[in-house]
Design a protein around this nucleic acid. Sequence first.
DNA 1: CCCTGATTCGC
DNA 2: GCGAATCAGG
Length: 192
Amino acid sequence: MSWTDERVETLKKMWSEGQSASQIAKELGGVTRNAVIGKVHRLGLSNRAGAGAAPKAAAAAAPKAKPAKPKAEPKAKPAAPAAAEAKPAEPAPTPKSPARRAIIPAGQPLPPQPSTNEIPAEALAKVSEVEKKAKKISVMELTEKTCKWPVGDPATDDFWFCGLPSQAGKPYCEAHVGVAFQPMSSRRDRRR
DNA sequence: CCCTGATTCGC
DNA sequence: GCGAATCAGG
């Protein structure tokens, strides 16, 4: 398979939508997630741009020597130029917030329950976006791999669980993890 | 072990 | 340019 305009278009679209590389690969067919990621990088959209892309520009290119075990001596580490600008006003963070009363019946552990604290508009937007395509599964269908974020009022039939694929070890999907946990300041970090 | 994206490097 | 292999991490 080759990267036709159409396929690239789909790739861009899905990537900016937050789809994972494997999902995109599956959708396109004929390619692996590696191929997708590789293409994403070559296209220069490794960073999920599109909307609230925080301009984390000029990352200090630590002039540290890497004593590690270099397979091959790289020529240099050209710190990315990172021309970050274009800051489209973040669309209003979803005023769509019907009176949500206590979710979760009588459970004790309930990490979520936003509204009290300020959650990044981006995170909220992400959640509402996710809730639209949530699988809406019942409690019976929850597994180790499904997001267990409850939505709606348990007292009504308008209650379901997100059900989207959760990260290993985490009870929620990426989006819900974002609003469930405050300390999400440990991300975006150049490895190696 | 499941998954994620990131990077390298032979092709 | 491509993507498998590899790596780093949740």
